[in-house]
Design a protein around this nucleic acid. Structure first.
Length: 735
DNA sequence: AGCACGCCGACT
DNA sequence: GTCGGCGTGCTC
């Protein structure tokens, strides 16, 4: 006689362990993957059963019994459970919290997967005769019964009854007592999916597209494919053929996109070409909409799921293909709490499910290209479509020769004039908000700094303020130097100043600035974009937020005002990002019959980066970066982990990382290196001091083993010190 | 994370 | 005399 099994339950607390419970007093054992309601401390919480065990570290007598089983079968199947466990292990994040992020809010709160439909139905034996018998003596009951008989065997929902006969319950109880009606409770299924419509005809594929489709089609198990092609090269068409295949085979496709708001065209094309309504998963859904989409995906009722990063956790009854569109987009990476990369999890999931994963991008990340070089992934290249718009001319403007005091150099000014005279629209891209990034004293050189952190303050002229773009602090604009009282001068140019300069340089033209300051008001962004698209604005000044997703038909010139930021960044991705954003903005310059022009203002015109970009475009830049990293940093570069800590007290964040570092160094014999001093300047943001420690290893296993050892140390921190920490794993060490 | 316990300052 | 501040510890 074996003893009762023990339930291993994941609970949403920041502890990386499972909690043991005894099964409920009566009723069947919960399935692995089912939710249970448990007492946890003084609280009642919903947890997910992740396993059954014979024994527990805690003696049985001290174990609590779980109070209720919320699902009569597994809510989460083995495939998805594996992904949740993997996520927890890989990102060193508590399993309960991973489960919580993966579940729709309503399920996390313990609601039933399917809403219950309750109502009243006529008893099989009842009929017109009973109606007559009730007669005038019981008119309420008679009327209700008539309603039920009209509805037939299926009966009527309580909700419907509430509407047509608000006081039906009294009469209903009587009818039930008399055996004339029965109460029913049934699972309310989701409505039938929208009837398919006639798919739009498919265009003829280019040779490269055919080859790409054939390569993925030939893959009947897991395989990763990098679909590399610029905008307009026909990536979507490749997705469409593959998706259509998979759906025809009765399986499901999961498509991850960076931001659903930016991809209405993509969803529209799916709809038109596939003749089905995709299920959308994104943050703008209500809890009920999200649960409904989740349910349908899980039941296999919807063949196509399109969603943003959290959609990687959508359950799939029959996965057949995973697509990650714009693979390089940073929004696939969650930057808070559980720091997961939806792209990497999508790859892991495809691997586990034994299905192909297609990663599309015009500017693929270095790590994906490295995988292709190593033959882990298949590189599918779509050349620019013949007959399409010609690629724009890129040229460099040397700001060490042409001064660009207020953001605008003479060659750029001349180009703007030329393009405007020709009826074109101009976009100036400057990734720096405000009037000027610095306020400097003309006498002593003092720079206005933030009092809350060590960043310099940005001048916002319209608001007459100095603002810290780091911690958010702001104060009134100084009229004189706070140190010596001499006059102060704004140095350098932000979007606000550039807008000013342009308005003065081109008096007759309309200048429009689009950045997070100008679009802070609700709806302002849409208005601005509408004006920009319609062409009512001749000159656009914008930050990063303007770099993607919008098409301006009249645009012929793009000027990258300050291109040097990305050139010498400390972030190992900064050059990659710079190339990506230039390629992105450049891709939008030019209209029919008119080749676009891209001007890049830089003080380092001879930097090899520009030579490559102009010569070979993004491929050249990334090839160079790949070669350079292969020579200097790989393989260690391929296994990185960033340990982040933040605390109210600077000393606390510091002490924490010192402890982590000491531990890491003791473990040094196992091929893990600690990079960067803990004493590097700590940023202050949102009232917290943040510090980071970079760990590097040639061996994935060794790095993860070390992080696992660090976990108890991290979790054992006194809560009162308010130290928060997280681990970033980046990113080549997946498969 | 939440929640309770526990010990020290200003108050219905 | 208590209410409540947050430091400390615990959660199967």
């Amino acid at each position: 006689l074996t003893s009762e099994p023990i339930l291993k339950v994941a609970i949403a607390v920041p502890l990386s362990r499972l909690f043991d419970y005894l099964p409920p007093k009566d009723g069947p054992l919960p399935a692995v993957g089912a939710r249970v309601r448990v007492a946890f401390g003084k609280r009642r919480l919903t947890g997910l059963v992740l396993g059954l065990a014979e024994e527990s570290d805690i003696e049985r007598a001290r174990l609590k019994r779980c109070e209720a089983v919320l699902d009569d079968a597994a809510l989460i199947d083995d495939e998805l459970l594996w992904l949740l466990r993997f996520t927890s292990e890989y990102y060193h994040h508590p399993i309960g919290e991973v489960v919580a992020t993966a579940l729709p809010a309503l399920l996390r709160q313990g609601q039933a997967v399917y809403p219950v439909r309750e109502g009243l139905a006529p008893a099989v034996s009842s009929g017109a005769a009973d109606l007559a018998a009730l007669g005038r003596r019981a008119p309420q009951q008679a009327a209700l019964l008539e309603l039920l008989l009209d509805a037939g065997d299926a009966g009527v929902d309580a909700a419907t009854l509430d509407e047509v006969r608000p006081n039906w319950r009294r009469a209903g109880t009587e009818l039930i007592r008399k055996g004339l009606a029965v109460r029913f409770e049934a699972r309310a299924d989701d409505p039938e999916p929208v009837v398919a419509w006639e798919p739009a005809p498919a265009p003829v594929l280019s040779e490269a597209q055919q080859a790409a489709v054939a390569a993925v089609r030939a893959c009947e198990v897991y395989g990763a494919f990098l679909l590399d092609g610029v905008t307009g090269s026909g990536k979507t068409e490749v997705y469409l053929r593959l998706i259509a295949d998979v759906i025809a085979a009765g399986r499901q496709v999961l498509v991850l996109v960076p931001e659903i708001g930016l991809t209405p065209q993509l969803v529209g094309r799916f709809r038109a070409r596939l003749g089905i309504e995709p299920a959308l998963m994104h943050s703008a859904l209500t809890d009920h909409e999200r649960l409904s989409a989740w349910r349908r995906a899980r039941a296999g009722e919807t063949p196509l799921i399109v969603g943003t990063r959290s959609a990687v956790f959508t359950p799939l009854a029959a996965p057949g293909l995973i697509v990650v569109d714009e693979e390089h987009d940073p929004s696939f990476k969650q930057q808070e709490g559980l720091r997961y990369s939806a792209r990497d999890l999508a790859i892991a999931r495809a691997n586990r499910a034994g299905v192909p994963v297609v990663l599309g991008s015009a500017t693929p990340t270095l790590e994906m290209q490295k995988h292709c070089l190593d033959d882990n992934y298949t590189h599918l290249v779509l050349p620019e479509r013949a007959g399409g718009a010609e690629a724009p001319v890129l040229s460099i403007v040397d700001t060490s020769r042409f001064t660009a005091d207020e953001g605008l150099s003479e060659p750029v000014r001349a180009a703007i004039e030329r393009q405007l005279a020709d009826g074109g629209q101009v976009l100036l891209f400057l990734n720096r908000r405000g009037f000027a990034p610095t306020l400097i004293c003309t006498a002593c050189g003092h720079v206005a700094g933030c009092r809350r952190c060590d960043a310099r303050l940005t001048v916002h002229a319209a608001a007459s303020e100095l603002r810290c773009h780091h911690c958010g602090a702001s104060r009134l604009l100084d009229t004189a130097c706070e140190e010596c009282g001499s006059s102060v001068r704004p140095l350098g140019a932000g979007t606000e100043r550039l807008e000013d300069t342009l308005a003065r340089a081109f008096p007759g033209q309309s200048v429009m600035r689009i950045d997070s300051d100008s679009t802070a008001r609700k709806g302002a962004m849409d208005e601005a974009l509408a004006a920009a698209t319609a062409g009512t604005a001749d000159i656009l000044v914008g930050t990063q937020m303007l770099s993607k997703g919008h098409h301006f038909p009249r645009l012929t010139l793009v000027a990258v005002v300050n291109a040097d930021q990305g050139l010498f960044g400390t972030d190992f991705r900064s050059d990659e990002r710079l190339a990506q954003s230039i390629v992105q903005v450049a891709g939008r310059a030019g209209r029919e019959q008119k080749r676009g022009e891209v001007l890049i203002q830089t003080a380092f015109p001879n930097h090899p980066f520009w030579r490559r970009l102009i010569g070979d475009g993004y491929a050249g830049v990334s090839a160079e970066a790949l070669a350079e990293r292969a020579a200097t940093q790989w393989p260690p570069y391929s296994r990185l982990a960033l340990l982040r800590a933040s605390a109210h007290q600077r000393a606390d964040a510091h002490a924490f990382l010192v402890a982590a570092r000491r531990h890491a160094e003791r473990a040094g014999g196992r091929d893990v290196r600690v990079l960067g001093p803990v004493d590097a300047p700590m940023a202050r943001k949102a009232g917290r001091h943040r510090a980071r420690l970079l760990l590097q290893s040639g061996q994935r296993q060794a790095l993860h083993a070390l992080l696992r050892e660090l976990r108890p140390l991290l979790e054992g921190l006194p809560a009162a010190r308010k130290v928060r920490w997280s681990v970033d794993v980046d990113p080549l060490d997946l498969y």
